[in-house]
Amino acid sequence: MAKRKISNTLALAVLGLLQEREMHPYEMAATLRERHKDGSFKINSGSLYDTVEALLKHGWIEAVEVTRDGRRPERTVYAPTALGQAEFVRWIDELVRVPAAEYPKFLAAVAYLGALGPRGAADALDERAGHLEARIAETADILPSIGLPRLFMIEVEFALHALRAELEWTRTTAAEIRDGTLAWPGKGAA
């Protein structure tokens, strides 16, 4: 499989928004935040404008209009090109079909959980469980208020399932450490 010219998933979000309607970058950022997509994509103005420039450079989007509202700066409105549309569909298909190697920081930390000792590890997992519970509650609360069809927020539903699974694993592992069913060999057993 050929290496994709653009692999930043923020580009995927931009192309996704442009499926709905033509937009300028400020509107893109506002829409992504309004829909709480900042949990799925890293959104900041600099990276968004860099992403738009990369999409333009590779011919995936094109400027269709420049507007000015009062004394505000000019805003360039973009739309996907036929190439951009084809790449968007191909990219989505690939990401859904083929699991990619991802390297979450939490997995790296869990690999060395033993360094914390049983008490430290159980305490750290308990604290993580509290953070996960809060995140789950916050996400579950905002999801219905967004008012979009389920298909447009399905990644949030997936994220909730993943958070719930992580919470269950975290609680179970902390309990196993505390009750001694997870063996803790060697030094640092305090």
Rank of each mutant, 00 (worst) to 15 (best):
I61G: 00
L56F: 06
R97Y: 15
T67G: 06
D93V: 11
V66W: 04
T67E: 08
P99Q: 15
T81W: 03
K57C: 08
E87D: 13
E74V: 02
P73C: 05
L83P: 03
V98H: 14
E62A: 02
I61H: 01
I61T: 01
Q85G: 10
F88R: 12
T81D: 06
W60K: 04
L56N: 14
W60D: 12
W60M: 11
R97N: 15
R75L: 07
D69H: 07
Y78W: 09
T76I: 11
A63P: 12
T76A: 04
E87M: 12
A79H: 05
T76E: 09
A63E: 10
E65K: 01
T67P: 10
H58Q: 11
L56V: 10
V77H: 01
E74K: 08
E74Y: 06
E74G: 07
P73V: 04
R71D: 14
V96K: 13
R68C: 06
Y78L: 03
P73Y: 07
L56E: 14
K57N: 12
I92C: 13
E62F: 00
A86N: 13
V89G: 05
W60L: 09
L56T: 10
H58A: 03
E62P: 01
A63D: 09
Y78C: 05
E62C: 01
V64F: 00
Y78V: 02
R75F: 07
W91S: 01
V89S: 13
K57M: 11
D69F: 10
A82T: 11
G84E: 03
E94R: 12
A86F: 12
T76R: 09
V77S: 01
A63H: 05
H58F: 08
R90W: 06
D69G: 06
P73M: 05
A79Q: 07
L56G: 09
G70K: 03
V66F: 05
V64N: 00
V96F: 14
I61W: 02
P99A: 15
I61N: 00
H58R: 11
Q85N: 11
I92M: 13
G84D: 02
R68D: 05
A82K: 05
G70R: 04
W60I: 03
V98K: 15
L83M: 07
D69V: 07
A82V: 08
V98F: 14
F88T: 04
I61D: 01
V98M: 14
A86L: 13
V98N: 15
E94G: 08
V66D: 09
W91K: 01
E87H: 11
